[in-house]
Amino acid sequence: MIHFVLLISRQGKVRLTKWYSPYPQKERTKVIRELSGLILTRGPKLCNFVEWRGFKVVYRRYASLYFCMCINQDDNELEILEIIHHYVEILDRYFGSVCELDLIFNFHKAYYILDELLIAGELQESSKKTVARHIAAQDSLVETAKEQASSLSNIIAEATK
């Protein structure tokens, strides 16, 4: 089971967090500070697994972002690396070569994609095409709602003249 997902920049800024196990806010802050210090100081030639507080943290660096997932001791690290890579591939497909700014300005999309991929800390969907279809359907719903809101505001503006 995945306990939480963190996306951290090389400067130590948190870009995305998703918690699947209950942690109080103080503990979350402490966890983020501890793990960012631990992971950012590791050399690039070291393995991508860290034992931490009775758990394993699996991370992978893509460009300027570290994608980290905390799992149980007996879970498969290579499977988690594949999940991380799968998430990055879907982000790349959606944003067209995803970068840190995409995640900053479209964080809601990054969360939505993660929610399509994982539920309660377990892999939900392994098909990139299915996830892309769900995201496209949600985008079209948002566009339809924006058009309806725009036409409604135009009707209201005309009526108040």
Rank of each mutant, 00 (worst) to 15 (best):
K45E: 14
K45H: 10
K45W: 09
K45F: 12
L46V: 10
L46C: 09
L46W: 04
L46E: 14
L46S: 10
L46T: 12
C47E: 14
C47H: 14
C47N: 14
C47W: 10
C47G: 12
N48S: 15
N48D: 15
N48I: 01
N48C: 08
N48L: 03
F49G: 00
F49N: 12
F49Y: 15
V50M: 04
V50Y: 03
V50Q: 12
V50S: 10
E51A: 09
E51C: 07
W52E: 08
R53I: 00
R53L: 05
G54R: 03
G54C: 09
G54P: 11
G54Y: 07
F55P: 04
F55D: 13
F55R: 15
K56W: 08
K56E: 01
K56I: 11
K56F: 11
V57D: 12
V57S: 12
V57L: 07
V58M: 05
V58H: 06
Y59N: 07
Y59E: 10
R60M: 03
R60V: 00
Y62H: 11
Y62F: 13
Y62I: 03
Y62A: 02
A63K: 03
A63T: 05
S64T: 15
S64W: 00
L65N: 03
L65A: 05
L65Y: 05
L65K: 00
L65C: 02
Y66M: 07
F67Q: 01
C68W: 02
C68R: 06
C68Y: 08
C68S: 14
M69A: 13
M69G: 02
M69Q: 10
M69P: 02
C70K: 03
C70E: 06
C70H: 02
I71Q: 13
I71A: 07
I71H: 14
N72C: 01
N72P: 00
Q73R: 15
Q73G: 01
Q73N: 09
Q73H: 12
Q73Y: 06
D74C: 04
D74I: 01
D74R: 05
D74W: 02
D74E: 15
D75Q: 06
D75Y: 08
D75P: 00
N76Q: 10
N76K: 08
E77C: 09
E77R: 07
L78P: 08
L78C: 13
E79F: 03
E79N: 13
E79V: 09
I80H: 07
I80F: 05
I80Q: 08
I80T: 15
L81Q: 13
L81S: 04
E82H: 09
E82Q: 11
E82T: 03
E82P: 07
E82Y: 09
I83Q: 14
I83C: 12
I84K: 06
I84N: 03
H85L: 07
H85N: 13
H86Q: 08
H86T: 07
Y87V: 10
Y87W: 04
Y87D: 01
V88D: 11
V88E: 10
E89Y: 00
E89A: 04
E89W: 00
E89D: 14
I90G: 08
I90V: 15
I90Q: 00
I90A: 04
L91T: 01
L91W: 06
D92V: 01
D92L: 03
D92H: 00
D92C: 02
R93M: 11
R93D: 11
R93K: 07
